[in-house]
Design a protein around this nucleic acid. Structure first.
Lengths: 188, 188
DNA sequence: TTAATCATGTAACACGTTACATGATTGC
DNA sequence: GCAATCATGTAACGTGTTACATGATTAA
């Protein structure tokens, strides 16, 4: 239920519209949890039905009208309850779900040259992501200074740091994988 | 569609029942793709309807009867087509989906002490997983010798190696995260 | 005038999870 | 006698993805 709890967590910093939540999500939580706009609107409807949120329609003259959501007491309690029971998520915290690795697993059904093309493409991806990291920290600082308190920023940075370490580990892996394959290629 | 293609890939080594596919999945692919038994049976039904597989009922006397699935030509073509178009999966190959990191992100809503409890529990999990890795390689070798050819084993090992590197990176991250928090704790 | 940003959704389908149901055989 | 392994599923629900629909305002 992480999408619901992500929304609760964001709304705990103050009321927001679905549109704003969507942008917040993509700016911060999308490092480790991706959600479509349409999914966010659907969840908001469901969460209001559950009594975790209430919405208020705000009329605007210059822009389209909007619907501002805020936490109810029930919603706050639910957030606290969730924060207090992390066991199941720690249990699965190391599990990976990767369609890319599925392809690596079955690369034996193709030629070694094709496998190398796959791995080299992944290496490029790793290098790209790593070189984009500086701007990530910049945007955390810029955004954080304005709208988020320091305590919250600290944990945001920790999650970004996870992404960074993850990317570097992936690069390390693919370098090793490529050189293993190239070695076995020249032996054959 | 990775579950379907995982099944195609496994059946490409030879016909299997849903029960055997389920065990294969859990033994090998579950490092990077988890699937429930019931999901596998549902996919098999759907894939047969699509014409990718055919099933044959085999009567057994000592054990319950079973239903053996094999690839059709259409299924083989689909597998080849999938292997030839990895672009989208490489694009998202570095993306993470982690309910645990969602909790880290929102750990600012609790006390620093609670955050440390969370991170220490994760560290334990990392250490556990890392110490379980030797047996992983052992079982790949044991299983691989019997039923899988050498070319396939190589890629299996690569995916397992990814898991290992990932675990070590996670440990590195959590050690750093804990010491950062402990530092800021003593400053406050 | 055209793209970008603001703003909210519906519908259909695909995929994942949980709980339940059934019943045979083998080894301790 | 009891647990483990063999073997196959259904039903309901929850979550994720894709495509589509609508329409206003602002900046280039």
């Amino acid at each position: 239920m992480s999408l619901k709890h992500g929304i609760l967590g964001l709304l705990n910093s103050g009321p927001m519209t679905g549109y704003e939540l969507d942008r917040s999500f993509k700016r911060s939580l999308s490092f480790f949890w991706q959600a479509q706009t349409s999914q966010i609107y659907r969840e908001l409807t469901a969460m209001e039905k559950k009594g975790w949120l209430i919405s208020e329609r705000v009329v605007q003259e210059d822009k389209p009208n909007k619907k501002v959501y805020s936490l109810t007491e029930t919603g706050e309690e639910e957030l606290k309850k969730w924060l207090a029971t992390p066991e199941a998520d720690i249990e699965n915290a190391l599990s990976i779900r990767s369609a890319f690795l599925m392809r690596v697993f079955f690369a034996g059904e193709t030629t070694e040259e094709e496998a190398l093309v796959l791995l080299r493409a992944f290496r490029e991806k790793c290098l790209e992501s790593i070189s984009a990291n500086d701007s990530v920290y910049e945007s955390i600082e810029n955004y954080g200074k304005r709208e988020v308190n320091e305590k919250r920023m600290k944990y945001w940075e920790l999650t970004a740091r996870f992404g960074e370490i993850h990317q570097k580990a992936a690069l390390e892996w693919v370098e090793e994988a490529i050189s293993r394959l190239e070695k076995s290629n020249s032996n054959s």
